[in-house]
Simulated scan of single mutants.
Amino acid sequence: MLIVLPPSETKSDGGRGAPLDLATLSFPSLTAVRERIATALVELAGDPARSATVLGLGQRQLAEVDRNAALWTSPTRPAIERYTGVLYDALGVGGLTRASRTKADERLAVGSALFGVVRARDLIPAYRLSSGSKLPGMGTLAAQWKPDLTDALADLDDEVVVDLRSGGYRALGPIPGAMDVTVLTEAADGSRSVVSHFNKHYKGVMARSLVTTRKRVRDIDSLAAVVSDGGQRTEIASATELVILTD
């Protein structure tokens, strides 16, 4: 099973790993695209004012440009420890047992505008780049990643894939046959609406269930069973869509 998480704009600082080496990352077929985007991002960082405009940064976020400038030289850490925020707080990898952390390293991946997708254990630096960004001379990131990202994610030896990425990151590389998750809130009158910001929390809780379970996820029914065991209310919408219901 591969669970593809969305990234986060917020990332932890520092790390103990050696500087970025694209050749060590999972999904090596993506190396050429990664290098092209990384090179453009570092070059852009040489112009802080333009970087702020292209990346949509405010005055208090200009340190993000420094992160990009040091992309090839700054220390790295496992991707699952690099990304922070609501989803990653709910996932709580720091509190996992050794056995569950091993499962997390094996089962989790993170979508990325810069790297396409990385596995939990891949060593990456802090950076700033979003799915909707357009780097100078490169057009959209979706155009850069297609079809390489989809091809890489489709070549998983029939592995079950649960895609928790948001729409912008799915657009970079759709995964044929992946199981998707929608988070809905249900009112007392039975009406339902899509959960926006806090859907990240519920997906983090779900991801934690998937890396701590001993059950094997083979299809949408077994996925629903594991998520329900984790205390979340579920509903199967189709063979590839699971709904998580909240009050």
Score class of each variant (00 low, 15 high):
residue 85 G to F: 04
residue 85 G to H: 05
residue 86 V to N: 13
residue 86 V to D: 10
residue 87 L to F: 15
residue 88 Y to V: 05
residue 88 Y to G: 00
residue 90 A to Q: 04
residue 92 G to A: 15
residue 93 V to A: 02
residue 93 V to F: 11
residue 94 G to Y: 08
residue 96 L to M: 10
residue 97 T to I: 00
residue 99 A to W: 05
residue 100 S to Y: 01
residue 100 S to H: 12
residue 105 D to K: 01
residue 106 E to L: 09
residue 106 E to H: 10
residue 110 V to M: 09
residue 110 V to Q: 06
residue 111 G to K: 06
residue 112 S to V: 03
residue 112 S to A: 06
residue 116 G to F: 05
residue 117 V to A: 14
residue 118 V to E: 00
residue 120 A to N: 09
residue 121 R to Q: 15
residue 122 D to R: 07
residue 122 D to S: 05
residue 126 A to E: 12
residue 129 L to E: 00
residue 130 S to E: 15
residue 130 S to C: 09
residue 132 G to D: 14
residue 132 G to K: 15
residue 134 K to Y: 10
residue 134 K to P: 07
residue 136 P to N: 07
residue 136 P to F: 00
residue 137 G to Q: 13
residue 139 G to W: 14
residue 139 G to T: 13
residue 139 G to F: 14
residue 139 G to P: 01
residue 139 G to E: 05
residue 140 T to L: 11
residue 141 L to V: 13
residue 145 W to L: 13
residue 147 P to T: 02
residue 147 P to R: 00
residue 149 L to F: 04
residue 149 L to S: 13
residue 150 T to L: 03
residue 151 D to Q: 12
residue 153 L to N: 04
residue 155 D to W: 05
residue 155 D to P: 04
residue 156 L to Q: 10
residue 157 D to A: 05
residue 163 D to Q: 08
residue 163 D to P: 07
residue 164 L to G: 10
residue 165 R to H: 12
residue 165 R to M: 14
residue 165 R to P: 11
residue 166 S to G: 14
residue 168 G to D: 15
residue 168 G to T: 05
residue 169 Y to L: 15
residue 174 P to E: 01
residue 174 P to W: 01
residue 175 I to D: 03
residue 175 I to Q: 09
residue 175 I to N: 04
residue 176 P to T: 01
residue 177 G to Y: 12
residue 178 A to T: 08
residue 179 M to L: 15
residue 179 M to S: 10
residue 179 M to D: 06
residue 181 V to F: 12
residue 182 T to E: 07
residue 182 T to H: 12
residue 184 L to P: 08
residue 186 E to T: 03
residue 186 E to P: 01
residue 187 A to K: 11
residue 188 A to R: 13
residue 190 G to L: 12
residue 192 R to W: 03
residue 194 V to S: 03
residue 194 V to W: 01
residue 198 F to H: 15
residue 199 N to G: 12
residue 200 K to L: 11
residue 200 K to M: 07
residue 201 H to S: 02
residue 201 H to I: 00
residue 202 Y to V: 15
residue 207 A to R: 10
residue 208 R to Q: 04
residue 210 L to D: 12
residue 211 V to S: 09
residue 212 T to C: 05
residue 213 T to L: 10
residue 214 R to S: 15
residue 216 R to V: 12
